[in-house]
């Protein structure tokens, strides 16, 4: 199939007078990992539910794998695997029985289902726990069981809502590895998160989301460049007068902000030496200087700061 696998046009959802999702336009290409990034309550989950046909949009349209989720929900749901935020299973039933239930709902017959379940549990390293009741599973195991469900169904698109919410760092790392391996299999993945580092590490493209609107869409590196105008940050701790102005005059510095006693400098490169020189020339006492690469968090903070100021 050609063209984007997920496509929305003017997708809007209003609850009374409150607009949860406001005229959303975005495309997800087949085989990519796309991140919806935004704070809690930004409208990410609502967007996902509209893509699945579980919530009716107030206006606008969506297409998933060429189908309209509103009118052809079964076709969409056959092709899409969904892992909700804080996924739940029937705690008194075993992992296998839980999956068998959804397999039957998905239309697999008993034999196909059992084969697919065994294979997908193997894939997420849960074969040993398949016969145990889900009540005994850890959070990470539940998340992996949800992925097994998506695999079992043979879905070509996976929609993951806050996939690493509440996981410890070790489980998060394993989970990200799993997402990467799904991508390698050619699965299209749409994930939502408020954890910027996570998105930065696995997503091909991201959409920054706030108040129901997409602010920016693009590849992570190009966002860093476009929004920050630079890719480094430098933290300067020094005492003295008018240091901000002095630092801002250094070539390559794009922005200087005060962060408590320290200065936060954004720049196109590692300009520590130049900045140190400028501080000393201005008569300041330099006590510490450190540098690092800018992250999506900086983009995010900066971008929405800008939006809020403009509003």
């Amino acid at each position: 199939m050609s063209g984007p696998i997920i496509h929305t046009e003017g997708l809007t959802k209003a609850y009374g007078s409150k607009i949860a999702v406001d005229r959303l336009d975005f495309d997800v290409e087949a085989g990519e990992v796309f991140g919806l990034l935004g704070p809690n309550g930004a409208g990410k989950t609502t967007t996902i539910l509209m893509l699945l046909g579980l919530t009716e949009p107030t206006s606008g349209t969506a297409r998933v794998a060429g189908f309209d989720p509103l009118r052809q929900p079964l076709e969409v749901k056959r092709r899409v695997g969904y892992m909700p935020d804080q996924v739940g299973f029937y705690d008194n039933l075993s992992g296998i029985v839980n999956l068998r239930y959804t397999a039957r709902l998905a239309g697999l017959d008993r034999r196909e289902a059992d084969e697919a379940i065994a294979k997908s549990l193997e894939r997420v390293h849960l074969s040993h726990a398949g016969a145990k009741p889900v009540g005994t599973y850890s959070r990470g195991m539940r998340q992996r069981l949800a992925i097994a469900e998506i695999l079992m169904k043979g879905a070509s698109i996976a929609i993951l809502d806050e996939p690493t919410g509440g996981l410890d760092p070790q489980s998060t790392r394993e989970f990200l590895e799993l997402i990467r391996s799904l991508k390698k299999d050619g699965m299209t993945i749409l994930l939502s998160s408020h954890l910027l580092e996570l998105v930065q590490s696995v997503c091909d493209r991201v959409a920054l989301f706030n108040n129901g609107k997409i602010g920016l869409t693009g590849r992570v590196e190009s966002l860093l460049q476009d929004v920050l105008g630079g890719s480094h940050w430098i933290r300067v701790e020094a005492t003295g007068d008018n240091l901000e102005a002095a630092v801002a005059r250094v070539p390559g510095v794009t922005r200087v902000t005060r962060d408590g006693a320290a200065l936060r400098v954004e720049a196109t490169g590692d300009l520590r030496a130049d900045i140190a020189r400028a501080v000393v020339h201005a008569g300041g006492n330099l006590t510490m200087i450190a540098a690092g690469h800018a992250s999506l968090e900086d983009v995010y903070t900066r971008y929405f700061e800008g939006v809020a100021h403009a509003a």
């Binding site: 579980l54 079964l74 749901k77 695997g81 892992m83 909700p84 739940g88 959804t102 709902l105 998905a106």
Partner: peptide, 9 residues
Amino acid sequence: SRILAQPIY
């Protein structure tokens, strides 16, 4: 939501 995400009404 997980159950309703299966192809059923």
